[in-house]
Simulated scan of single mutants.
Amino acid sequence: MKQALICGGGGFIGSHMVKRLKEENFWVRGVDLKYPEFSPTEADDFIIGDLRDPHVCREAVDRKFDEVYQFAADMGGAGFVFTGENDANIMHNSGMINMNMLEACHKRNVKRIFYSSSACMYPEYNQLDADHPICSEDSAYPANPDSEYGWEKLFSERLYLAFQKNFGMEVRIARYHNIFGPEGTWEGGREKAPAALCRKVAMAEDGGEIEIWGDGKQTRSFLYIDECLEGTIRLTRSEWTGPVNIGSDEMVSISRLAEMTMRIAGKKLNLKHIPGPLGVRGRNSDNRLIYSKLNWKPSQPLREGMKKTYTWIEGQIQARENEDENRLGGARHIA
Rank of each mutant, 00 (worst) to 15 (best):
V110W: 01
Q127I: 06
M101I: 08
N98T: 01
F114N: 02
P123I: 15
L128K: 06
L128A: 11
S147D: 07
M99C: 02
C120L: 05
M121N: 14
F114Y: 15
R112E: 04
Y125P: 14
N126Q: 13
Y125R: 14
S147W: 08
Y141K: 05
M121A: 11
P123N: 05
A140C: 11
A143V: 10
N98A: 00
A119Q: 14
Q127P: 12
S116R: 04
S147Q: 13
R112M: 03
Y115W: 14
M99I: 03
Y122T: 12
I134K: 14
M99S: 00
I97R: 00
R112F: 06
G95R: 00
C105I: 04
A119I: 08
E124S: 10
E137P: 03
I113G: 10
C120T: 11
D138F: 12
C105N: 05
N109L: 09
Y125Q: 06
C135L: 02
A130H: 14
M99W: 01
Y141H: 13
A104S: 02
N100Q: 05
Y122C: 14
C120W: 02
N98G: 01
A140E: 15
K111T: 05
K107V: 00
A143K: 03
K111C: 09
S139I: 11
E124T: 15
D138Y: 11
C135I: 15
E137T: 14
Q127A: 12
R108H: 00
A119W: 09
M121D: 06
Y122D: 08
Y141L: 10
K111W: 04
M121E: 07
D129K: 08
L102E: 00
R108K: 13
H106F: 08
M101D: 13
S118M: 02
